[in-house]
Design a protein around this nucleic acid. Structure first.
Length: 188
DNA sequence: CAGTGGATGCTCT
DNA sequence: GAGCATCCACTGT
């Protein structure tokens, strides 16, 4: 399945399907190992109360980036999904760093590679994604997306850091990955 | 390890 | 004026 086909469909199927893809920004990035789905029918979504200046990109074309500021400090990056006019997006929560580790270490200022991309705010800092990227097309440079080379298992859980619609299990993590924002103690 | 609180800016009520 | 789709440092076991 192509990236366009994947993100053009149901946001939860897209979220699960995005696990294992490699995201690069100017040659720096890694494999997506943790994401969450958000939809306009979902009370935890920025689009729940309709279109605003901040969330307008969510209503636009699939495969573009929705970037917003979180807690006044961090940036969070989402992949817009579904048809134009229906607001849905997949929040990128963690990558397994594979490309440009040196540049990520400098940007993050940490020694432990485990902390380079484990969390939505950390991931954007490591890849230098900011509000200037809001609305950018992920199919065009400096962005690149490479499909997984082999099948992988995905675990579904409740989302993290929200207060509404906490019962929905719309978080997807690569099974056994030790690179997620909430590492499993039993990671292989 | 678990729990707490501060930083900090913007959006929406 | 409240409330965040967060991270980090610090406390106490």
């Amino acid at each position: 399945m192509t990236f366009d086909e994947l993100v053009g469909g149901d946001v939860n199927e897209a979220a699960q399907g995005l696990i294992g893809w490699t995201l690069l920004v100017d040659g720096v990035g890694g494999r997506i190992v943790e994401v969450e789905a958000y939809d306009q029918v979902d009370a935890a979504s920025h689009a729940y109360r309709g279109r605003t200046a901040r969330n307008r990109v969510m209503f636009g074309k699939a495969g573009h980036l929705y970037v917003y500021r979180s807690y006044g400090i961090h940036w969070c990056a989402n992949v817009v999904c579904g048809p134009v006019g229906h607001a849905a997006a997949v929040l990128l929560r963690a990558l397994e760093p594979t490309h440009g580790l040196d540049r990520m270490r400098v940007r993050r200022g940490v020694d432990d590679d485990r902390l380079l991309c484990a969390g939505p705010g950390r991931l954007t800092q490591a890849l230098a994604v900011t509000g200037e990227c809001d609305g950018a097309d992920l199919a065009a440079p400096p962005f690149a997306l490479l499909p997984p080379v082999e099948p992988l298992a995905v675990v579904r859980t409740a989302r993290i850091g929200i207060t509404r619609a906490v019962e929905l299990e719309w978080r997807y993590v690569e099974s056994g990955s030790s690179w997620s924002s909430r590492p499993s103690r039993r990671a292989a």
